[in-house]
Amino acid sequence: MNSGILPFVIGWCRRHIEATSLILLSISIGAVWMLAELTDEVVEGSTRDLDRDILLLLRTPGDLSDPIGPWWLEEMGRDITALGGVAVLTITTLIVSLFFLLLRRWSSALYMMITVGGGILISSFAKDFFGRPRPDLVPHESIVHTASFPSGHSMMAAIVYLTLGVLIARVQPKFILKLYVMIVASVLTLCVGISRIYMGVHWPTDVAAGWLAGGAWAMICLIVARILAQRGHIEEEVVEEAG
């Protein structure tokens, strides 16, 4: 069954490049719309009870200083949350840049650096603009200095991992490899966001906003990459031959 479905999907995408771009654009617009609605609810304070309930759900009843689960789960939370830190994301971006350079895809490497850098700048601006206080219900399990909304770790993880994911997927010939790359990027993004809530340093809506913003940015970057490739400014996407 799979042997029949995959060639059909690959062939359809190749024959309807404008349609697939339109689908991606629709997803991006939907994410931006959801982000705007969520931001409005947060500013009005409508999400306060939901944020509070979810945050307390991840703490041991009677001891808010203790996250639920064994000690090693808390240690894993610290390790995973570091995947959304500036150092790890910078190293990851440099490694993927070298990957593109080794493939002699110079324009793609430059485009990747611009899109990732631009996304991170937007993330920093957004935190300064909203200035939402950090959660004060539970002790923080990680050192924090900046504002809370949107979650910087979640947004930057989404921007970096998802943007790198869609650009790496463009140079993979097989559909299954493209899918694998995007699944890995998505799982990393989700894990970083969940860890920020578990560590008590972000409200759940902070993380949701970071995911939506980063996801929309990655989709927009993919659409722009397709447009630039059609105009010959960056390398074409590698696509597996159907059948």
Rank of each mutant, 00 (worst) to 15 (best):
R196Q: 10
I10N: 09
I120L: 11
P135G: 07
I122H: 03
W203M: 04
V43K: 13
S124E: 12
V238A: 00
A225G: 09
R231S: 10
L25A: 12
P173I: 01
L167D: 01
C13L: 10
T81C: 05
I114Y: 08
S186K: 02
M156S: 11
S124L: 11
T93I: 05
V171R: 02
E235M: 04
V239T: 09
A209P: 00
S151V: 03
E37P: 08
M76P: 05
T205A: 06
L73Y: 11
V96T: 08
M156E: 10
G30K: 00
V9L: 15
L55D: 03
G210N: 04
A82R: 11
L222V: 00
S148P: 01
S108L: 11
I17W: 10
F149Q: 05
T146K: 09
I143F: 10
A19L: 09
I5W: 10
D79P: 06
I68F: 11
L22C: 12
F175L: 13
Y111P: 02
L228D: 05
V171I: 09
P173L: 04
T189R: 00
V187K: 07
M34Y: 12
A147Q: 01
N2E: 14
M76F: 13
F125Y: 15
V32T: 11
F100V: 00
G84T: 00
P173W: 02
W217F: 05
V166R: 06
E18L: 14
E241Q: 15
N2L: 15
S3R: 12
V32M: 13
W211C: 06
T90R: 11
T90D: 08
L110W: 08
G152N: 03
S195F: 03
T163Y: 05
S65L: 07
I183W: 08
R78G: 14
S107P: 04
A225K: 01
A126G: 05
I95L: 15
E240K: 01
Q172C: 12
D79Q: 14
E236S: 13
I91M: 13
I27G: 07
G69L: 10
A126P: 01
W72Q: 15
S65H: 10
L222N: 04
E18H: 14
S148K: 03
I143Y: 13
G193N: 01
I122T: 03
L24M: 13
F125E: 13
T205G: 03
R104D: 10
G117R: 06
M156H: 01
G232V: 04
V9K: 07
G85A: 12
G243K: 12
T20K: 09
G85M: 08
D63A: 14
L167A: 06
T93W: 05
S26E: 02
E74H: 15
E241A: 14
Y111T: 00
V144Y: 02
F149M: 04
H153V: 01
V42C: 05
S124P: 04
A218I: 03
R132S: 02
R14F: 03
I220N: 00
G131L: 02
L73S: 10
G11Q: 08
S65Q: 07
I23F: 11
F99N: 06
V43E: 12
P7E: 00
W71L: 14
V192S: 08
E141C: 05
E236D: 14
P135Q: 07
E141W: 11
E41W: 03
S65C: 05
V144A: 10
S3G: 10
A213L: 13
I220C: 07
V184S: 07
W12Y: 11
L6F: 14
E41A: 12
R59K: 12
I54C: 07
